[in-house]
């Protein structure tokens, strides 16, 4: 009975959004504040306000602080937030679609495809004319698209109705194969090795505003595509036949969700490398706190995922300062045990 009342209390959706938003805001402030140079939160608020509203005077704020905030910390925090939000909402959508709390962008092979695209670019030193430094991200996104279509084509050839089990199996086949290709290229690489490995482990450091410009449009498109499908995701999490019975155009909606998910994952992997467990743990945690209704699960996952990755990035750059850990190491260190605990709790419940 007590559990019941807790659930009802948390079901107050407004409170859920306020909590999640407060978490994200705190994460951002702390993320910008802490570093080799500590900046007081009030300074951060003043600098950012002055940037947005020109009529607000910077006053006597240190120009160096303003510079650090606007050119180093803020873009880094925003990028971490966008990557975390992208991975979390994509994970939530894939879990709903595949009816499997263990599913995430990685299980269906999208991120492996994106990684391969990036590694290929680095390996061959590819460059798209006029794209310059955006060659790498563009290739990542392109390859994540190619992978998801290859996976879908392959799955459809095995079975016309494309059951979720078939898609997951196909994803695993593709992940293993693409992972092997990546390993092969790393083995063949000489001096580029460190750069590729560093990239594979994931990082949001030293990316700057340019990378935010890359990921933002993809994030907006992908997130909107998923948000308009949240009711359909609710239906599909009861099984595709059930969804069809209720009146969902399953083939069309499934395709929309898969495409949106691959856009989000592809763009995230492109700007930050492979960061695991965000797409797995955040939706799960959000669902446990505020229920499985995708109409709220998706936006809440965006907020929580963004905040989580900002904190993870903060830890990765401060824990062994002045050196930096790849952010993927931190998310795995936090995410894997947390996921293990969730799994055990689930097992006990059943």
């Amino acid at each position: 009975m007590q559990k019941q009342s807790i659930r009802t209390y948390l079901n107050n959706k407004l409170l859920a959004y306020l909590t999640a938003a407060a978490f994200l805001l705190c994460a951002m402030l702390i993320g910008i504040s802490i570093g080799t140079v500590s900046i007081h939160p009030s300074t951060i608020i003043r600098v950012i306000s002055a940037e947005i509203f020109p009529f607000i005077s910077l006053g006597n704020t240190d120009a160096m602080h303003a510079n650090i905030i606007m050119n180093i910390r803020l873009p880094r925090v925003l990028l971490a937030g966008l990557v975390g939000a992208s991975l979390a909402i994509a994970g939530a959508a894939f879990q709903g679609l595949l009816r499997n709390p263990l599913a995430d962008p990685y299980t269906i092979g999208v991120s492996s495809g994106a990684s391969l695209g990036a590694v290929l670019t680095l390996f061959f030193g590819l460059s798209i004319p006029f794209a310059g430094m955006f060659t790498l991200p563009l290739f990542s996104i392109l390859f994540s698209f190619l992978t998801i279509f290859a996976v879908l084509l392959f799955a459809r050839n095995i079975e016309r109705s494309m059951k979720v089990e078939t898609i997951i199996l196909t994803g695993i086949i593709f992940s293993s194969f693409l992972g092997a290709l990546i390993s092969l290229m790393i083995a063949l690489t000489g001096e580029e090795l460190r750069q590729i490995i560093g990239w594979l482990l994931g990082s949001v450091s030293m990316r700057g505003w340019a990378y935010i410009n890359i990921i933002l449009p993809f994030f907006v498109v992908g997130a909107i595509l998923l948000l308009v499908n949240s009711k359909e995701l609710n239906a599909m999490s009861f099984g595709e036949e059930k969804a069809r019975h209720i009146g969902v155009d399953v083939q069309k909606r499934k395709m929309m969700v898969l495409i949106a998910g691959s856009i989000l994952t592809g763009a995230a992997v492109a700007v930050s490398g492979t960061i695991g467990f965000v797409g797995l743990v955040i939706p799960h945690l959000t669902r446990m706190l505020w229920g499985p209704d995708h109409r709220h699960l998706l936006p809440l996952s965006i907020l929580v995922g963004a905040g989580f990755l900002i904190i993870a990035d903060l830890v990765s750059r401060t824990i062994i300062a002045p050196a930096e850990l790849p952010i993927g190491v931190i998310t795995a260190l936090i995410g894997a045990p947390a996921f293990g605990i969730i799994l055990m709790k689930r097992k006990n419940k059943l």
């Binding site: 609710n234 999490s237 009861f238 099984g239 036949e241 209720i246």
Partner: peptide, 28 residues
């Protein structure tokens, strides 16, 4: 779906929706 509704032999539920949330899906 407005004409035919189906009650299958097995209904799977991967996540813990409430009873009312589940029933409400029928209004899709």
């Amino acid at each position: 779906a407005k004409i035919i509704a189906v009650l299958p032999q097995h209904s799977s539920q991967a996540f813990s929706y409430t009873v009312k949330e589940t029933v409400s899906l029928g209004r899709y």
